[in-house]
Design a protein around this nucleic acid. Sequence first.
RNA 1: GCGCCCAUAGCUCAACUGGAUAGAGCGUUUGGCUACGGACCAAAAGGUUGUGGGUUCGACUCCUACUGGGCGCACCA
Length: 535
Amino acid sequence: MSIKNKLQYIIKKSLPIDVDISKIVIEIPKDKKNGDYSSNIAFLLTKELKSNPMVIANDIKNIINDKMIDRVEVANPGFINFYINKDYLLDNINIINTEGKNYGRSNYGNLEKINIEYVSANPTGTLHIGHGRGAVYGDCLSRIMSFVGYDVTREYYINDAGNQMYNLGVSIKERYKERCGMAFEIPENGYHGSEIISLAEVLYNEYGMSKLNEDIDFFKQVGLDILLGDIKKDLDRFRVNFDVFTSEQSLYDSGLVDITLNKLKDSGKCYINDGALWLKTTDLYDEKDRVLIKSDGNYTYLLPDIAYHSDKFNRGFDRIIDVLGSDHHGYIHRLKSSLEFVGYDSSKIDIKLLQMVRLLRNGEEVKLSKRTGKTITLNELIEDVGVNAARYFFASKGLDTQMDFDLDLAVKKSNENPIYYIEYANARISSILRGKTIERVEKFSTIESDSAYTILNKLLEFEDVIISAASKRMPHLVANYMLELASLFHSYYSVEKIITDNEIYTKERMALISAVKIVLNNAAYMLGLILREEM
RNA sequence: GCGCCCAUAGCUCAACUGGAUAGAGCGUUUGGCUACGGACCAAAAGGUUGUGGGUUCGACUCCUACUGGGCGCACCA
């Protein structure tokens, strides 16, 4: 059980009335003068208890008696502040060193089945920096939610059936014609990226001019296979992985798209106008109705997507998380409305929108556009700054910040990325501990400094940090935590020598920094970072 | 024009979703290596949290009206 959870129960037991545990908020005060932990519960009970916060807080204080808590103080205008017992903090060192990689794990998620869909980039080109942000977010969230006991499925949706794929096929065919020395023309809405030219090159090298009479489907399929393969390779290099790849085409093939269409028709929410089939999404959350089948008989993107989300529901997920670019925000209402029409509970869908990455080059904005082929690829980024620095950069920021990424600055100052500061802490500890064994300390007797106890409190907080990162879907909390822990360690390192002539002193401090190293690496794992032991 | 998101130190971002004196990194200034790694530490300067109202014990956080940015507003995906 996490420390906040324990405190919640301790408080609950001390209350004169029954209060829902989730209403008892435990916080970590910014100023240590206000305790290691604090609660504002007294403010919340003033109405029910018909008393003022100070009186309520003092009543609670007088009842609380737990060996985990050293003392309780009440502060104006009614905060209850807790100080954690030092032996309890010290013993946590042993727990960390024993549990190792598992320290911080919990069953908070109760094995709830979660589907997290992210990246899902159309296989019509190479991944760029914007995809990197979504990839890191989805991957970190998956790792974090798994760690706290959710049953997580990581999923990638392949849009391999629509118009864009057709355009891809055309673009490849035209490039192939170009390579064969024939007249060619890339259509206005075709793909102009350099990867299409390389694709044509591959085709030419393999088949010469023998494929000139193949239809668009042939080129589409070749493009899909190769580009999707490249995407998977890039993601793998970025330490981003998936459990399931779902193909849009497979939803047509299995008949689910048509089944979904019939269910929508049965729902009575469809009507025909101007030769197209519309869905009355305005009956729920949408601002205008949407077309399901165009007047030319083709389906819009929405229809297979309703089928896709139905499929996710049918697979029995308790919660569905979609990670999308913020340019898709207008899409949410029509999707949720449609799903309600076919009988699913759309409140189980959590759509996380990530703001665009604005790419700067020497202070000037570089417009990303796949169509014109002007992109900074994910691979180029990794090449320049490395996987760790790139991942940390994305992982350390909240979803709704519109972040600026100055590539020149990032490369030039890559050593100033906080990840190096964190790695340096890990390297220092590794260097001290190298070749030595950590022993269990039955009774700590020499750890007394404030800086040591600040670290111990920070270590104790770890499980709660992971839980709130998971429940709030905010992986950057873990990134912040890591940086703080690294900073506390550097500080501690500068004031206390670890290895001395005193055997007990040395043994206890080695156990402490070993615990720091374990937690640092567990946090790193959560963010998909691999901390170097030497720099 | 309508809708969603954003605005915090010179710059890039935090602030535990309503808590106590708004914090880090970079940059600037000052001090610290005969120590287990100086890619470090200690300290200073830097803020009317875009603006005006409101809600309450308490607001960066919630409501409202503005200002300025991003993104949407297809029988594209």
